Simulated scan of single mutants.
Amino acid sequence: MFATEPLRIVAVSAGLSNPSSTRLLADRLAAATREQLETGQDRPVEVRVIELRDLAVDIAGHLVSGFPPAALEDALAAVTGADGLIAVTPVFTASYSGLFKSFFDLVENTALTGKPVLIAATGGTARHSLVLEHAMRPLFAYLRAVTLPTSVYAASEDWGAAGDAYADGLPVRIRRAGGELAHAVTGGGTVSGASRAPGPDDEVVPFAQQLAALRPA
């Protein structure tokens, strides 16, 4: 008998602008994970992206009152009930944003135990890329989650860049991270394509054009 319960991937984006590079990165990571899951096994896949900026007032109210409004309660339930989690924050003062931290402060400290988490961040310069290691990994270690080996940092210059002889381009890193999350979600099952060579789908698209595609119709 084949399992019919869908695999649930939840991406949390703490971007403040609309559109934002943080949401763009969350979408790309979620799409890469979905692609690997749909290739490697027969279960349906559900992807949900949670925009924390839409919940900012609810998050502040919950921190003060201790009672989450319905929308925030639903978001917290989605995160704790996910099979795999993608967490993406912009960099503020060399760390994750206050909105990102406030949301995860509301997650019970055992609710993510053993859950695979792909961490990612965006910033204006590559100098802040260590935020993934000195801030985000310790946060999810405290929450007892399992952070994946590959984390993804996207500086402004990474969008629309194809990489060089010393570093993979952003599309390659996104695909590798998505493959790792898909592999972890399926319990170590085979997920094809996680390390395939760049192809036509990896065509470099200017950053302004990528952001423009996110604007509401």
Rank of each mutant, 00 (worst) to 15 (best):
F2K: 10
E5V: 11
R8G: 01
R8D: 09
V10C: 00
V10L: 01
V12K: 00
V12G: 03
S13A: 06
G15W: 00
S17T: 01
P19C: 10
S21L: 08
T22N: 10
L24C: 02
L24Q: 13
R28A: 09
R28I: 01
L29F: 14
R34G: 14
E35Q: 13
E35V: 07
G40W: 03
P44F: 12
E51K: 00
R53K: 07
R53C: 11
D54V: 12
D54S: 02
L55T: 01
A56P: 15
D58G: 03
A60L: 04
A60N: 02
A71N: 13
A77T: 13
A78K: 01
A78M: 06
T80F: 01
A82Y: 01
A87Q: 01
F92D: 14
A94Q: 08
S95C: 10
S95H: 07
Y96N: 10
Y96P: 05
S97K: 15
G98S: 05
L99F: 14
S102C: 15
L118P: 06
A120I: 13
A121T: 06
G124P: 07
G124R: 14
T125C: 11
L132K: 12
R137C: 13
L139T: 11
L143A: 08
A145M: 06
A145C: 04
L148I: 08
T150D: 15
S151A: 07
V152K: 03
V152Q: 14
A154R: 10
S156N: 13
G160W: 07
D164A: 03
L170P: 12
R176Y: 04
R176S: 13
G178I: 06
G178L: 15
G179N: 03
E180M: 07
H183N: 04
H183W: 15
G188S: 11
G188A: 01
G188F: 02
V191C: 15
S192D: 15
P198I: 00
D201R: 04
D201I: 14
V204I: 05
P206N: 10
F207E: 09
Q210T: 14
A212R: 09
A212D: 05
A212T: 01
A212Q: 05
R215P: 05
P216Q: 01
